[in-house]
Nucleic acid binder design. Structure first.
Lengths: 190, 190
DNA sequence: GATTTGAAACCGTCCAGACGGTATGTTGAA
DNA sequence: TTCAACATACCGTCTGGACGGTTTCAAATC
């Protein structure tokens, strides 16, 4: 009997593969992500995976691209929810960074950390980072303050994802940072 | 052929191995760190490495232990240079984090990021992190503010090590954070 | 409308190299 | 002689990815 191979939409398949890769990376980290594992998790053959992504790095790059895209959307969404003029971007960035819903910044950080030796991925991320930093600095706040807030958000996010800090006082920290990003506060004011 | 083997001090050898591992990890990241590479870089055989460290994870744990120890020392040293009562620890932590001299926080971060799946290492680091966080919160500042400063330091450090942010406005950011931490800085410090 | 053709979308297998680890030697010191 | 401190040789596994099919579909040709 002929295995009735259903003609799949290649675009869908690509997304399926990325979903699978995301899932694997999320659960076990990028270090243990293997083509076989992704293929298996996507219910596809390894050859199939390699058809859509010429090699492993391309797959990881694809992951990164999708993730940063979603992160961007998240930021824009948060801006719309709180667009008050000065510091709107900084606050949105902070909230997006610490938001736990959906595929979050965790995976970006995991990618970031485990893919240092993959130049293609790092270049992708670097470009985005430059953009984020620029928009942070042009947010109407003191650039140094805004940058500090951004870095703090990343530090917190990292600490949380590594399980190195409980969510104990984090609420207070977030409140403080949001307040800092709340506008008309000169840099020399505590 | 007689390889004139000189009787080495085992303790020295251990340190040599860790030095080599540190160097390799620093240059190419933990992901590419291999026993052969470490052995080669230490001018020793792989068997020799495995004699001192029963397996790879033990080697990485050894690395982590030495690094956090040095980081601790760095903090204490910075405290002595600027011990003004409130915020002394927070400022010292920040400075130690961003100090580029010697084996810095970079490697700790690299280890942290690439060794998530090695529980032994993570437990080591977690214990230290709890300590650091506690001392930060008990530094005489508002705990939320002190924590924020700490996180910002880590975020900056990470960004720098990943090459995701030039040192452009970083001076201003550091100044702002030190100011937040109540610092009247001595002239020989940043 | 039927047939050919060609390319895209996969599958399944196999291989070479890398790597962690073991097992066994060898050498110097106590 | 014994033991720690190495060296050397080797094994088993894993993994990326190359490669040669095979199926499906759609446009071109007849």
């Amino acid at each position: 009997m002929v295995t009735h191979r259903l003609a799949r939409d290649p675009e869908k398949t690509r997304e399926m593969i990325l979903d699978a890769a995301e899932k694997v990376a999320e659960e076990k980290g990028l270090g243990t992500l293997t083509l076989d594992l992704v293929a298996q998790s996507a219910s596809i053959s390894k050859g199939g995976v390699l058809h859509h992504f010429p090699n492993k790095n391309a797959l990881i790059s694809g992951l990164m691209e999708r993730l940063t895209g979603r992160f961007q959307q998240k930021i824009e969404s948060f801006i719309q929810q709180d667009p008050t003029a000065p510091g709107a971007y900084t606050r949105a960035y902070l909230r997006a960074m610490l938001d736990n819903d959906g595929p979050s910044a965790d995976l970006i950080y995991a990618l970031l950390s485990e893919a240092r030796n993959i130049p293609e991925v790092m270049n992708l991320l670097r470009a985005d980072c430059i953009l984020w930093q620029r928009r942070t600095e042009e947010d109407g706040l003191d650039p140094a303050v805004a940058s500090a807030i951004r870095f703090a958000g990343e530090g917190m996010s990292a600490a949380m994802m590594f399980g190195l800090a409980g969510p104990s006082c984090h609420e207070d920290v977030i409140q403080f940072l949001l307040q800092l990003a709340g506008g008309n506060k000169p840099s020399n004011l505590v």
